[in-house]
Design a protein around this nucleic acid. Structure first.
Length: 405
DNA sequence: CCTCCACCGGAAAGCCGGGTCA
DNA sequence: TGACCCGGCTTTCCGGTGGAGG
């Protein structure tokens, strides 16, 4: 055992220059000073919210736009500024930002309201109380002093059922308050979100509406270049890399977050490969890696029943090509359950699991009719081919199965 | 044109594990 | 301690249905 090779390795590692000069700039939690191509939207948000500096209640605002179009960033930018101004002048404005997507934090009625109260400085037990009681505590805390509260509900479409009820309660909140006033800003990725909303909720929630259009490839390029200039060392990006990154992201719907992630991962790959420049091929690799990591992550964190279901699907898939239907998946799944000693779920439930796997983007499941031969889901794997083997291994291990079914 | 398959998918209810409160 | 609450997962029940084949 000689230590030389390791010494060399670390030596090299230390001497080698990274393509990054400041990688943090590309990370998703980084909040830039300005939001390019969103001046118009920011101005409008500012316009709508401005009255709060005079302690007048601003209109409720609803913002639509697909992922990575700068909604959250723009709102945060504006509200931060307002908060700053208000604090400077001693105006009692309170801004509460909550992301409704956070699992186990703010994705149900109880938890959301509890989270609001917590932000106002009132701790509420994570469970146990009647929901009405949580509301009462929240209202009381809210009305304990004169103030103007702006509730920002990000990814509002993620609230599990009863979303209607929550929003209904929130929109009429002002009626029960003596001292304080509340405005709501809702942010949604889903452009159809308001369609299935109670008419009363809809009209009061969207007193003002704002739509964030997707970025096009040119705009994405500018955004990327702007950040890349700060994040990478000079001359460490080959010509065409930015363009390709932007093109990839624009191909979907102009998701800037995705584009930045792509660039960052490509930089990592370049670093690891020992080169000192980010090349165009690195973008392809990065795309593959991101997708692979995502799928691997999901698959290994899924409950056993999901894994068994997916395993059944992959087994059928690898035995023969062609369409896979719910019925046959269920048959195989039952066999697997008895083999690994878990109690099989009903077909009704399995049907839901298949639908959920579809939502996760691991499979595609489309309801079709085979005429005389009934209605069912047509299932197909949606994972990159190169990773199927690896996923199968993960599943085998997770289910404690031996090779060969 | 009608039938009838093999499921889909909504509704309701049960169970369980997390918790509070008096 | 027992009554009660929430939320996630699951079962039970059951009406609904697109379209190939008769």
């Amino acid at each position: 055992m000689t230590e030389k090779p390791l010494d060399d390795f670390f030596e090299k590692f230390l001497n080698k220059e990274s393509v990054f000069s400041n990688k943090r700039i590309l990370e998703s939690k980084y909040t830039p000073e300005t939001v390019p191509h969103r001046d118009e939207q920011i101005k409008q948000i500012a316009n709508i919210l401005a009255p709060c500096l005079k302690l007048d209640k601003p209109s409720n605002l609803f913002i639509y736009g697909k992922t990575g179009t700068g909604k959250t960033l723009s709102v945060k930018c504006t509200t931060n500024k307002i908060k700053e101004m208000a604090d400077l002048r001693g105006i009692p404005v309170c801004i509460i930002y909550i992301n409704c997507k956070l699992k186990r934090i703010a994705d149900t009625e109880y938890r959301l309201i509890a989270e609001f109260a917590k932000n106002l400085g009132k701790e509420i037990p994570a469970t146990g109380l009647p929901t009405q009681e949580v509301y009462n505590l929240f209202y009381k805390e809210l009305d304990s002093k004169e103030q103007l509260v702006i509730l920002v509900l990000d990814e509002i479409d993620q609230i599990k059922k009863a979303g209607n009820l929550i929003l209904y309660n929130l929109t009429r909140i002002n009626q029960g308050l003596q001292k304080s006033q509340v405005s709501i800003i809702g942010i949604s990725n889903d452009l159809t979100f308001a369609d299935n909303l109670d008419a009363r909720v809809k009209s009061s929630l969207s007193e003002e509406e704002l739509i964030f259009p997707s970025y096009n490839a040119i705009q994405l390029q500018e955004i990327l270049r702007d950040r890349a200039d700060q994040a990478f060392r000079k001359e460490s990006i080959e010509v065409g890399v930015i363009e390709k990154c932007a093109a990839y992201a624009a191909r979907e719907h102009g998701d800037a977050r995705r584009a930045l992630e792509l660039l960052r991962v490509a930089g990592d790959i370049a670093d690891r490969g020992g080169g000192n420049r980010v090349k165009i091929e690195h973008i392809d690799e990065a795309e593959f890696k991101i997708e692979k990591d995502r799928v691997l992550d999901i698959v290994s964190s899924q409950p056993k029943q999901f894994q068994a279901t997916l395993f059944s699907i992959i087994s059928i898939y690898s035995q023969r090509k062609g369409m896979i239907f719910t019925g046959e998946v269920y048959e195989l799944y039952k066999g697997i359950c008895s083999k690994i000693g878990i109690i099989p779920l009903t077909q009704r439930r399995l049907s839901d699991i298949i639908a959920e796997l579809d939502m996760l983007g691991i499979i595609t499941a489309k309801v079709i009719s085979k005429g005389r031969y009934g209605r069912t889901r047509e299932i197909d794997l949606a994972i990159p081919h190169g990773t199927i083997g690896k996923i199968n291994n993960i599943l085998l291990k997770a289910l404690e199965l031996k090779e060969g079914d």
